[in-house]
Nucleic acid binder design. Structure first.
Length: 307
DNA sequence: ACGGTATGGTGCAGGCATAA
DNA sequence: TTATGCCTGCACCATACCGT
């Protein structure tokens, strides 16, 4: 049997007959006359080469073959019916969709509080599931549709991916407010000799950018500790004489502990373009467009306050 | 090609007559 | 009284034919 020769209406008729076990009632159900449905059944019998339903005292009983295909055909019809009912628009206020977003803990700390406050107002049932960024497979996850959006500093998302700049950030150095030698400024000498805490990041390019710049300027920094998350930095630095280098917006979100001071880096570090990235499969998706619009509305052109 | 109308065929239930 | 056979009416399905 070639599916190309199959009229999907015949499957609808099949489901109706299986449900009613009566041609007249099934015809009513699908909006046809009894003869029309009888004719449809005849066509389906010919295509499938099986009587499908036989007349008995209990009504039109399915043959073993019809009984075996009834359930998958019913599910297929329901699937198609459901697919065609999907609204082409996205009603954020009523939606209970959960979006998956690739984001570092920087993004979580900087963006999520504001994003969640906003969502609670306009889309109370919409959920955001932050996916930690894998070392490999970012593109694959987005192409497959497992992840809707990637927000932050991502390199190498190309070929079928779109990107949009949200805001530009810059690096600052942070140190303990009670640091014995670092006062209001940080010298290049201090930067080169004081122990650093660095982040062994993850798929993003923050540390890569810093490392690359430092290496290019032939500056070395002693690394006392490597942590796996940016949010661990202030905890370590607030209790030690180490220093660190982080995006300014992240540093400003360090409210606990509070004995962290921000310092202008004694060297030129690259700026950071925080972008949202999405795959072309979601380019016209109403829900994805809505989420991108939310990020744009909340974070486009966000300026870090001066220290 | 498909759906509608008209018509015929089939099966069942119920009523009735008849035989045991 | 019960069992059996026949007839009739009804419900339902299939087919032929026609129009769109």
């Amino acid at each position: 049997m070639n599916i190309n020769s199959l009229d999907l209406n015949l499957l609808v008729a099949f489901v109706a007959i299986d449900r009613e076990r009566n041609i007249t009632l099934a015809a009513d159900r699908v909006g046809l006359s009894q003869p029309a449905l009888s004719n449809a059944l005849a066509r389906l019998r010919k295509i499938l080469n099986d009587p499908l339903f036989v007349r008995t005292v209990r009504g039109m009983e399915p043959t073993p073959y019809a009984a075996s295909i009834a359930e998958p055909i019913r599910k297929a019809c329901e699937l198609i019916d459901g697919a065609l009912k999907i609204d082409a628009s996205f009603d954020a206020a009523r939606s209970s969709r959960t979006f998956s977003v690739f984001m570092t803990d920087i993004g979580e700390a900087v963006m999520m509080p504001r994003l969640l406050r906003h969502l609670q107002t306009i889309a109370p049932n919409v959920g955001i599931n932050i996916e930690s960024i894998p070392r490999r497979g970012i593109q694959e996850s987005m192409i497959s549709g497992d992840v809707d959006l990637a927000v932050g500093l991502f390199e190498g998302l190309s070929g079928g991916f779109f990107e949009q700049l949200l805001y530009r950030d810059e690096f600052v150095c942070i140190a303990n407010t009670e640091h014995p030698t670092v006062k209001d400024t940080l010298s290049l000498q201090q930067f080169s000799t004081l122990p650093h805490v660095v982040v062994s990041s993850s798929g993003t390019a923050h540390e890569v950018g810093i490392e690359r710049t430092i290496a290019k300027q032939r500056i070395k920094r002693p690394v006392a500790m490597t942590v796996s998350h940016f949010l661990t930095l202030p905890v370590v630095i607030s209790q030690t004489d180490t220093i660190g280098t982080v995006p300014r917006n992240l540093a400003l979100s360090f409210t606990n502990p509070t004995n962290i001071k921000l310092l202008k880096p004694p060297l030129k570090l690259p700026t950071i373009d925080i972008k949202q990235h999405w795959h072309e499969r979601y380019h016209y998706d109403p829900a994805n467009r809505w989420l991108r619009g939310v990020f744009l509305e909340l974070f486009l052109g966000r300026k870090p306050p001066k220290t």
